[in-house]
Design a protein around this nucleic acid. Structure first.
Lengths: 229, 229
DNA sequence: ACAAAAGTGTTATACTTACACCCATGT
DNA sequence: ACATGGGTGTAAGTATAACACTTTTGT
């Protein structure tokens, strides 16, 4: 192996996941109540250490799968957190990622096993280390990116209604949207496909179900279309 | 020291700096021709290894200062690059930062000592490892952020003219802007202060010099003003 | 028949874009 | 006097924001 870098310090590197969901009109976040040290009994993000055998992205996917049982999930790196004493137990760098998952699909037994619970983003308990800072940053980046790329759909089931979609964007932005203006914008988004089916869970009348057609979004993007909601 | 993390792998962590400047209407980038291994003789970003004694941000500042002699410079983290074989010599994670500097102020002797040269961003030589990917990502983030926060001014001298400022934004966005529309927007930015002095270097008539008043920008931001150019 | 959520258009306003001429000055 | 870049306003088009009633259907 290489000799050039022999004299440089080496570091523990962790990966922490901000796992977002969407439930009953609220943006939610998956946290674990630690049944291990350090900070036993406190709330934190799900994390894990990077191994030599994997890339950082792979580590993030592994950590997410350990807790939820899910793979092929939309994830984005937020950044590295590297203050000297961010973890008082030892010097650890942490790479934070956020993940967007459909809350109908995670593995409930794994969640129980890890002592994990969903929290509404505005009813979070205090978190260890700099995890609250990570969450804040994740939210900022999610808000920005969701406004300009169709990533919000990862938080919804495959079929969703327009009231459902609007509630999602209201939760992400933390502000109310005008129904008619919202739907007008949606009309101009040609990769949302209306089906004949209705969802009757939230009203007697029922609302039409739509699907997001990724392939046709990619095609439109090539042609210079830019998403905005 | 801590016992909890004993069995986890440790990693070399580098910091690489994308150092942007602005000169004669072009966005420029500071690269070094490596007089050391690995990849001796090839072009790369300026980098260095993270030490136990410093935070990652401090390491980035140190690396920037080593090459330019400058401190208190605007820097932003782009992210961590952690593919297993990104550096063929050994497993090294790299945290990339971009810096915006005023090209009148760097230390020329340090640049010579490190074999560093400025390149226009569209006349870059091939770079080692994933450095081109880092540069691409830095540009993306710079473009986005410059459009919505007044960070571009870090690339200019303290006093600058409006034609100068317009040329900067044209260089950042890579597209031409309409002079009158640009100046109209600038009129509405109340933290740009016009002085009575003129810069006569680029025309007989001379153009008025302006300064960016950071304090009054911060005040306006508090009041809900959002920058856009 | 009524409650409760789904669905539908129009108008006013603000923002964006396109565009052409005069000004000041050094040589 | 002229060449060179600095400086100025208006009108058309586009995007955004505000707003209220009808429809469907299960109970």
């Amino acid at each position: 192996m290489c000799t050039f870098y022999k004299n440089n310090d080496k570091f523990l590197v962790a990966v922490d996941c901000i796992i977002f969901g969407f439930h009953k009109g609220e943006l939610t976040l998956l946290l674990i109540k630690r049944d291990f040290n350090p900070c036993l009994g406190e709330w934190s993000l799900m994390g894990g250490f990077l191994n030599q055998s994997e890339s950082i992205n792979q580590a993030a996917e592994r950590v997410l799968a350990e807790l939820t049982g899910l793979d092929s999930i939309y994830m984005d790196q937020i950044g590295v957190f590297g203050d000297i004493n961010r973890d008082p137990a030892d010097r650890v760098l942490s790479v934070a990622y956020y993940a967007l998952i459909n809350m109908d699909e995670f593995d409930k037994r794994l969640l129980a096993k890890h002592n994990a619970t969903w929290f509404s983003i505005d009813k979070m308990p205090p978190l260890i280390f700099d995890h609250e800072h990570m969450v804040k940053e994740a939210l900022r980046q999610l808000r920005r990116k969701a406004s300009v790329e169709p990533i919000g759909f990862n938080l919804l089931p495959e079929k969703f209604t327009l009231p459902h979609l609007q509630a999602l964007y209201e939760a992400i932005y933390g502000s109310e949207l005008d129904k008619r203006n919202f739907r007008k914008k949606v009309q101009s988004i040609h990769f949302l496909e209306k089906s004949e089916e209705k969802d009757k869970n939230t009203s007697r009348r029922g609302a039409f179900l739509y699907t997001f057609n990724m392939a046709s979004y990619e095609r439109l993007k090539e042609e210079g279309f830019t998403f905005a909601l």
